[in-house]
């Protein structure tokens, strides 16, 4: 445990040796872990298929961007905006949840998908008649996070180590991740967590057991959304520029892939899924081209295309050989075992 902690603390400096890119990639990976853990509450714990999850991420990002940029000339500190972003995202979550409570399965999926698109279209079009979001041109020069005199935009030296902007963000993100994992672990085995599981497995039975399914489902949407809201705020701060094109449907699909590929319902599996899908495409970026040069002496196929093809095949193959995900939750494992014993 201590070793893991030490390794995680030393990691960014090791990575910075290989190139600051890897620190940035790691930061984005942590953002995606935060998102996946949030979506895991909705899909994994409560069993509600959500295809518009990225909308909450967008809400968080825009809350941050609007309240900490020259766009409106407002520059609030991050410790006010991030919780506010989480709150607003949670409200949107409840807003989405309320009309969809009666829907099940794929009908719910399509409504959430529509909701995600609606949010994006509004962000894209609220540049006129009144300029709220600056439309597709996005919001630039978003403030970096600063704590007192410590600005995350600068490089500072401390104890002989260079703390560059990305490394500072890494530590902040790591702290958030630890908090989120802790919350998730507590949630899973709490009253609420068990209620979610009951709703997921059999809604009617759950209601018969006295669970207020309406409230419990809304809570799942709101909780999941709030994680995305925080992640979105961090995204805006790290990037310094956001525009609606960062919040398209493909991103929702990507987060869902992370959750399912890793192992729906299992926190560690979900983290694994998010890490893999964040790092593998980047690794391929570095390896495909030299390998091709080595084997064929020239470029036969563009590396980007190979990267996407490998990604596609990976999704198909992992699903055929480990349909419960790479690291399935205990419940799923039991289910799978039960199904294979009972050949239909």
């Amino acid at each position: 445990m201590v070793l893991v902690a030490l390794a995680l603390l030393a990691l960014p400096f090791a990575l910075a040796g290989a190139g600051t890119t890897w620190v940035r990639v790691t930061n984005l990976a942590i953002l995606f872990i935060l998102l996946s853990l949030g979506l895991n509450i909705v899909v994994g714990f409560a069993g509600l298929l959500d295809l518009g999850y990225i909308a909450f991420y967008a809400v968080g990002a825009y809350v941050y961007a609007l309240l900490a940029s020259p766009h409106f000339g407002i520059h609030w500190p991050f410790w006010v905006i991030l919780p506010l972003g989480a709150l607003v995202a949670a409200l949107f979550g409840a807003l989405l949840g309320a009309p969809t409570l009666k829907l099940r399965g794929d009908y719910l999926a399509i409504v959430t998908l529509g909701f995600g698109e609606i949010v994006r279209i509004f962000l894209n079009n609220l540049g006129s008649p009144v300029n709220i979001t600056n439309g597709p041109r996005g919001i630039a020069r978003i403030d970096a996070i600063r704590i007192g005199e410590l600005s995350f935009a600068r490089t500072d030296s401390f104890l002989g180590l260079d703390f560059s902007g990305p490394i500072k963000y890494y530590f902040l993100l790591l702290a958030m991740l630890v908090a989120v994992i802790f919350i998730n672990l507590r949630l899973q085995n709490s009253r609420i967590g068990r209620a979610w599981e009951a709703v997921r497995e059999d809604e009617i039975a759950a209601r018969a057991m006295g669970i207020d399914t309406t409230r419990i489902k809304l809570l799942a949407f709101a909780m999941g959304a709030s994680f995305a809201g925080v992640a979105g705020g961090m995204f805006a701060a790290i990037q310094g520029f956001i525009s609606p094109e960062s919040f398209v449907l493909v991103e929702s699909v990507m987060v869902l892939s992370m959750v399912v590929l890793g192992g729906m319902g299992n926190i560690w599996g979900v983290i694994l899924g998010a890490l893999l899908l964040s790092f593998v495409p980047e690794l391929l970026r570095y390896t495909v081209q030299p390998l091709q040069q080595y084997f064929f002496g020239r470029m036969l196929i563009d590396p980007e295309v190979i990267r996407m093809l490998i990604f596609g095949f990976a999704l198909v193959l992992v699903m055929s050989f480990r349909p419960g995900g790479l690291w399935p939750s205990a419940v799923r494992k039991r289910e799978l075992a039960a199904r294979s014993e009972d050949p239909a």
Binding site: G105, L256, M308, F311, V316, P323, G324, L336
Partner: peptide, 30 residues
Amino acid sequence: AYRPLRRAPRLAPLISAIGVSIILQHLALL
């Protein structure tokens, strides 16, 4: 892509389908 997943949890074939879609698009690109 789908037959091996006939008895898998419901979301597995969905992810498989997304994978197939990515593969087909990029083969078409080539």
